[in-house]
């Protein structure tokens, strides 16, 4: 089970965090914008296609990898790409939100909401956690 990348966007589409754990091919220019636009459109599409109210998308796959998505009511978007073996990552992303984003950033007096995330408390804790997946 391999984690390829992890990113976090805020509600304005600003990429707050991006980390490659295992990514053989290079990222394209402006990929963050593409990613955000894709997520935004997919969300809207999924909502309008849904047979019942509520429920958003949380994963989508290609033949090569799977993309997992978790959005908080406060507009934070957690995106993780993994190999196809990874099942439902919602709990993992929620854990990252609750235990790393909240504990290491929200409660960090030296970090302001909306700032790019480079604080070692967060980055190191997240890396250690991802290594266990």
């Amino acid at each position: 089970m391999v984690v390829h990348t992890m990113q976090i966007f805020d509600r304005q589409g600003q990429p707050l965090y991006y980390r490659e754990f295992n990514r053989p091919l290079a990222a394209s220019k402006d990929e963050h914008k593409l990613m955000y636009g894709f997520l935004f459109s997919l969300k809207k599409l999924v909502a309008s296609l849904s047979p019942k109210k509520g429920g958003g998308f949380y994963a989508c796959s290609t033949s090569a990898y799977k993309l997992h998505y978790f959005e908080t009511a406060s507009g934070l978007r957690f995106v993780m790409t993994t190999d196809l073996a990874m099942a439902d990552m919602r709990d993992v992303l929620r854990y990252i939100y609750s235990n790393f984003y909240v504990e290491c950033l929200v409660k960090n007096p030296l970090w302001r909401p909306g700032e790019p995330i480079t604080c070692p408390n967060f980055t190191k804790s997240l890396e250690r956690y991802v290594a266990t997946l």
Partner: peptide
Amino acid sequence: RCSAPTATSATTAKQMA
């Protein structure tokens, strides 16, 4: 809980902390 963004100098980080 204080963890400074990597762009911050060590001095500034300590001052703020």
